[in-house]
C-alpha cells in the first residue's frame, strides 16, 4: 500500500519523538536505580551541610567508602583510650574495662574538674612513670558541661551524626574536624602510659580512616 507523502512525514516525526521520550525515560530510571541502590548498599545518611571549611564537593563523595572508613573510626573512638574521657555521665572512666574513675572526679563546668579535684592536680604534662599512675597531657580534661560530646553508648549512626554536627562537636568545621586527628589529646590515646592497651589500630591507620570518612562526605552508617 502506498502511503500519502504527508502521512509518511508525520509518521517519522512521531517515531522520532517516541524514541527521544523513551531514551529520556530510560536514562531517568537508570540514574534513579543506581542512586537508590548505592544508598541501599551503604546505608549512608547524608551529613548535614557544614559550616565553613573545605567540605567535600558533591562529585567527590563516595558514601560506600565513607561508611566503610567510619567502621574503623568507630572502633577507635569506642576503645577505652578514647571513650574513657567521653563518658555518658559526669565522671570520667578508667581502665580497659572503662569503670568509673576511682575517687569519682567530676567534670565541672569547663571539663577540668572541681575544687580540689581538678584533672591537672594529678595528671601532669607527661605520663607519670609506673603502673597505675596518672597518664599526662598539658590539657588533660573532659568535654565541657555545655557540650559533653558523649561517645559512651552511641551507635555508629548516632556517633557519626554527632561528630559532624557543629552544635554537638565543639563547634568544629570540616577543616577543624580533619585537623582534630592530630590533636595532642587524641594522640595521647597512642601514648597511654604503662599498663594500658592501645587503640585497635595505629594512629596512622586511624587518621587515614578518619580522613577518608570525612573527605568522602562524612556519611553516617544506617541506624
Amino acid at each position: 500500500m502506498k502511503q500519502h507523502p504527508d502521512n509518511g512525514t508525520r509518521t517519522s516525526l512521531f517515531m522520532k519523538i517516541m524514541t527521544l521520550l523513551s531514551a529520556v525515560i530510560f536514562i531517568t530510571t537508570a540514574v534513579t536505580t543506581v542512586y537508590s541502590s548505592e544508598n541501599a548498599i551503604s546505608g549512608g545518611t547524608e551529613p548535614q551541610l557544614l559550616d565553613s571549611g573545605p567540605g567535600p564537593e558533591k562529585a567527590d563523595r563516595d558514601s560506600v567508602a565513607s561508611v566503610e572508613a567510619f567502621g574503623k573510626v568507630y572502633k577507635v573512638l569506642m576503645s577505652p583510650r578514647c571513650m574513657n574521657c567521653h563518658p555518658a555521665g559526669d565522671v570520667p572512666l578508667q581502665g580497659d574495662d572503662s569503670h568509673l574513675h576511682t575517687m569519682l572526679p567530676k567534670r565541672g563546668v569547663d571539663g577540668k574538674g572541681v575544687y580540689a579535684m581538678k584533672c591537672s592536680n594529678c595528671h601532669q604534662a607527661t605520663n607519670t612513670p609506673g603502673l597505675h599512675t596518672p597518664p599526662g597531657n598539658p590539657k588533660w580534661h573532659l568535654p565541657p558541661a555545655d557540650m559533653k560530646m558523649v561517645f559512651e553508648g552511641r551507635t555508629p549512626h548516632q556517633l557519626a551524626k554527632q561528630l559532624v554536627d557543629p552544635k554537638q562537636n565543639g563547634r568544629k568545621s570540616m577543616k577543624k574536624l580533619l585537623e582534630h586527628a592530630d590533636d595532642t589529646l587524641v594522640l595521647a590515646g597512642w601514648n597511654p602510659g604503662e599498663g594500658r592497651t592501645l587503640p585497635p589500630m595505629s594512629h596512622a591507620e586511624f587518621k587515614e580512616a578518619w580522613t577518608t570518612w570525612i573527605k568522602n562526605g562524612a556519611y553516617a552508617p544506617k541506624p
Binding site: 575517687m103 569519682l104 572526679p105 567530676k106 572541681v114 575544687y115 580540689a116 579535684m117 594529678c122
Partner: peptide, 9 residues
C-alpha cells in the same frame, strides 16, 4: 559540694 571536693582524700 564537700563530697565532690573531698572524694580523692
Amino acid at each position: 559540694d564537700i563530697d565532690a571536693a573531698m572524694a580523692g582524700n
